[in-house]
């Protein structure tokens, strides 16, 4: 490594950073591809059918075949579409989904940018993902796409508030916005009993469910209504432009699962004190949360739109506010150690 450092001189830092970015994004993209495969197989088994099993052994090459197919398809730009914004929209959906990974720690030393305001950065970056949805719907010059984008954008904006409040609880417990510090704050001699999902249980539930709503996934996938508004905001996209929206959605799924694992489930910490910590624990937790998302989709029927709005505004936000006040009050008493 030092040899390369000498060879490249001042160009070393950007090259090395770029290499690290590739090292994060490439596995993420493979994860996204195989998450679609896992989704189809797992939901298939839950519904007593096989799922995709034709391409390659056990259908393992299916995501690659899908990717190739989408790549060779023509991108049709609808008549009267706002050309620039139509092409910009998938980029705006994808960029925040990838940019948020900059501050995600994988172990206590393995992190691209260990910044102090990490949690705040993630909230800011992910809140920009909604532009992709809004602009895709508007720029397609189609009523179906526009209605779909209005519905999903309203839903994303509403649940962001509950999600933000749930994160306030985490940072009150950890006394820090730095993700490495937050995970280290969950370390203790009791293993998994020290993780934040126990003292912050209502916030954990709110975060998990808001996460599903934020991702526009079942049972909150009202943007998709096959009978009225077809597939939602990206109905007029084809080929790779459509695939980008798909990639962004699944990359966001993995992101929310990772954040849930880091903030509430102890990240890379081992669930029992006698086993060593490590990245494999984080990977296992992410896989578990992702499995939950797929399980939700196979289990619950779709929510009605007014029920979604009611759940977000009238149930989750009050629950988080009450719990935050309670936490703040208890933390001033000798019982405050419960929340640390």
């Amino acid at each position: 490594m030092e040899f390369f450092q000498e060879l490249l001189g001042p160009a070393w830092t950007p090259v090395w950073t770029l290499a690290k970015i590739v090292a994060i994004v490439a596995p993420l993209m493979i994860g996204v591809a195989y998450l679609t495969y896992a989704e189809r197989r797992i939901i298939g088994f839950m519904q007593v059918r096989l799922g995709c099993n034709r391409v390659g052994p056990f259908g393992l090459l299916q995501p690659i075949a899908d990717g190739l197919k989408l790549m060779f398809k023509e991108i049709v730009i609808p008549t009267g579409a706002s050309r620039g914004l139509y092409i910009l929209a998938p980029v705006l959906a994808m960029a925040p989904a990838l940019a948020a990974w900059a501050v995600i720690p994988f172990t206590d030393t393995l992190v691209l940018a260990n910044i102090d305001a990490g949690l705040l950065y993630i909230m800011a970056v992910t809140s920009m993902g909604v532009y992709g949805v809004v602009l895709a719907g508007w720029a397609s010059n189609s009523k179906y796409a526009f209605l779909g984008s209005m519905r999903s954008a309203a839903q994303i904006v509403s649940y962001e508030i509950a999600m933000g409040f749930a994160l306030v609880g985490v940072l009150m417990s950890a006394q820090s916005l730095n993700l490495v510090d937050i995970v280290n704050g969950q370390k203790g001699e009791w293993g998994m009993l020290e993780w934040y999902f126990l003292p912050l249980f209502p916030l954990f539930l709110v975060y998990l469910i808001s996460g599903v709503a934020e991702l526009n996934r079942a049972p909150f996938d009202v943007a998709e209504g096959e009978s009225e508004i077809v597939a939602g905001f990206h109905v007029d996209y084809s080929g790779m432009a459509f695939a980008i929206f798909f990639l962004a959605e699944y990359a966001n799924m993995i992101l929310v699962a990772t954040l849930t694992s880091l903030l509430f489930l102890g990240g890379w910490l081992s669930p029992v004190p006698f086993l060593p910590d490590g990245f494999h624990w984080l990977a296992a937790k992410i896989a578990f949360v992702l499995f939950l998302f797929l399980w939700f989709r196979a289990t619950f029927p779709r929510y009605r739109y007014d029920q979604i709005m009611r759940l977000g505004w009238k149930v989750f936000i009050p629950v988080t506010l009450v719990w935050l006040v309670l936490m703040g009050a208890v933390m001033q008493t000798p019982l405050g150690y419960l929340f640390h």
Partner: peptide
């Protein structure tokens, strides 16, 4: 001023302007 910068993105770009665009 990283706190103010991120909050500007979070509040104005992420929330206010989305509603404005709506």
């Amino acid at each position: 001023a990283e706190f103010l910068a991120i909050t500007l993105v979070l509040v104005y770009v992420g929330a206010v302007m989305v509603l404005f665009l709506f």
